[in-house]
Amino acid sequence: MRFGLFIPQGWRMSLTDVPPEQHWETMLSLLHYADNAAAGEAVPGGEFAWESVWVYDHFHTVPVPSTEATHEAWALMAAFAAASQRVRLGQMCTCMAYRNPAYLAKVASTVDAISGGRTEMGIGAGWYEHEWRAYGYGFPSAGDRLRALDEGVQIMERMWRTGSSGTFDGQFYQVDGALSYPQPLQQLPVGDGGAQVPSIPLWIAGGGEKKTLRIAAEHAQYTNFSGSPEEFQHKSQVLEQHCRDIGRDFGEITRSANYNMVIGENQAEIDDKLAWIDAHFAQYAPGDQGHRESSLWRHGLMVGTPEQIVEKLQELQNLGMTYAITYFANAAGDREQIELFQRKVIPELQG
């Protein structure tokens, strides 16, 4: 199994206890920690490590919009690219409608050049209605958002692979000869002949069965959908059928999921971590929404000791979930859980 780590950027009220002038220092420190682990440092045996770091593509905090900072995803991607050497860099996930896809392809190619070929493109249709309307994007129907996602992914693939969008006259996007140089440094296989073309791995995020997973079957190198065993198995079966329908090898697509992690050596430590989460959201998101957020953590799948977490992840691995992207509450102020997970969980699943 492969592992990614979310960097606290503020969206989930993860920087509330950090003075604004220390936000970048806090993010950079955790980036360097993961980057060193990607080199085999601080991991028993030197072979088990974080493969990637991630941020969210959002503008306003959750569970409620607030004046707390939420740092912009692609500005962070460029900064992370320049400030790291080994760890791969992703967003889970970029909202297609927040940026024109031709422009987004250009931005991602530039980040790939800065990073030396370490960019991952998480992309989805978007869902945060308050944010959409606040920034003047309106809020189209789910069907229109998914059709825009499909068109945008096609434009990005063309630009990365050929350096030009060509002429694309879609319902939502129209481009005519938009150039994307530099092309990505990364090379991905295309067709059955072993040829490779410049491109960036596409992570199609979301579990919509009729459209999103169909787009994933057509274009994705990675998917990212529900992480519970029952839902993961069902979504995987739907994705496999889409692949069968279009004649694609289902095994070409790596299936990932995101997990809120609460880990402790014993129940007392776990209870302390959960108590911090309760107090945090009671302070920064008082009321029903904050209470619901705390409940999601408390009753989440990945709450337990290292042994319990390993057992849960092994079950998911047996279902085909081979890339777990982890989020730890209070990562900005307390790395104890991250270090415990790295010492006692990752080696058991990377053997």
Rank of each mutant, 00 (worst) to 15 (best):
D245C: 10
M302S: 02
G10L: 01
F139D: 02
W276L: 10
R2Q: 12
A81I: 05
A324P: 01
R343E: 14
N260W: 09
I246Q: 10
P182C: 14
A275I: 12
C243Q: 10
Y173M: 13
A34E: 01
D288Y: 14
Q289W: 08
S236T: 15
L146M: 10
V55G: 00
P20R: 07
L5S: 00
A329F: 08
V303T: 11
G300P: 01
W11M: 06
D17H: 12
S294L: 04
Q196G: 11
Q187I: 13
H58V: 04
S29K: 12
E157D: 10
G227D: 02
L179E: 15
F281G: 03
D35E: 11
I309C: 09
C95P: 03
L185R: 08
P140Q: 03
A102D: 06
A275D: 08
E231H: 13
N318Y: 05
E265H: 10
E240W: 12
E157Q: 15
Q342V: 06
H219Q: 12
V190G: 12
A38H: 04
D35R: 03
M77K: 00
G170A: 07
Y173I: 10
H58N: 06
G333I: 09
T67P: 09
G227R: 02
P19I: 03
D271G: 07
T254A: 11
W276D: 05
T305N: 14
L104E: 01
M1I: 06
E218L: 11
H58E: 09
P101M: 15
P286H: 09
I204C: 07
K211L: 15
